Computed example of a mutant assay.
Amino acid sequence: MRADNSSHLVLSARRRHELTRAKTVRALRELDIAGVPVTFEAVARAAEVSRSWLYTQPDLRDEIERLRALDRRPLPTRAPARQRGSDASLAGRLEIALARNRDLTADNQRLRRQLAHALGQLRAAGIPALEEPTAPRHTSITIGPC
């Protein structure tokens, strides 16, 4: 009678399966980080597994489909999925920037009024004011370097 070696075969198959899954997860991460479009074919090629095997793994299939759906959105630069900002986050950042712009515009107008008042007081006191700058004046709506 032969010895039952099936436990060794089961253990070997389990190890091979886990190794294959680890290679596939690593390939998914690398493709995402590189900004390469994530497709079943690209993952299968990078992980050296078959596409049919990928379709039989529900969690891997879901992750590939999720990343593939993200890749369909037009983005100027490809960033890894975990670093991409959500619409709510981007809207919040825009609102903060607009509020900061309003505050800076108000400060600029306040400082211009104070300067005009101070120059008026100097003129009234007979003190010569500073020379007019030779460079053209910029309005408060000018954006960019002077």
Rank of each mutant, 00 (worst) to 15 (best):
V43N: 01
R113S: 12
I33P: 00
I64G: 03
R123S: 11
A3E: 12
A34C: 08
Q57R: 14
I143F: 13
V10M: 10
L54C: 03
S7I: 10
E18D: 08
C146P: 11
S52T: 12
L19T: 08
P128G: 11
A79D: 00
E18F: 07
A44M: 01
A69Y: 04
A22K: 09
R29N: 07
T24W: 03
E131Y: 14
V25E: 04
T77E: 04
Q83M: 09
P58C: 06
S6Y: 08
A118P: 02
E132A: 15
A47N: 06
W53S: 10
R16S: 07
V38M: 01
G144F: 09
A22Y: 05
R112C: 02
P128H: 12
R110A: 13
A44R: 02
V38H: 02
R100K: 14
T134H: 11
L60I: 15
M1F: 12
L111Y: 11
R78A: 09
N108F: 14
D87L: 15
V25S: 04
I96W: 09
T20D: 00
L9F: 10
R113K: 12
E95L: 13
A69H: 07
E18W: 05
L19N: 06
R100N: 12
L9Q: 10
R61H: 14
Y55H: 15
E30I: 08
G35H: 02
E131S: 15
R82D: 04
P76G: 06
T77W: 08
S89V: 05
D59S: 14
L31P: 01
R66K: 14
P74L: 07
R45L: 11
L90D: 03
P37T: 05
V36E: 05
G85V: 02
E95R: 15
R100E: 09
L90R: 13
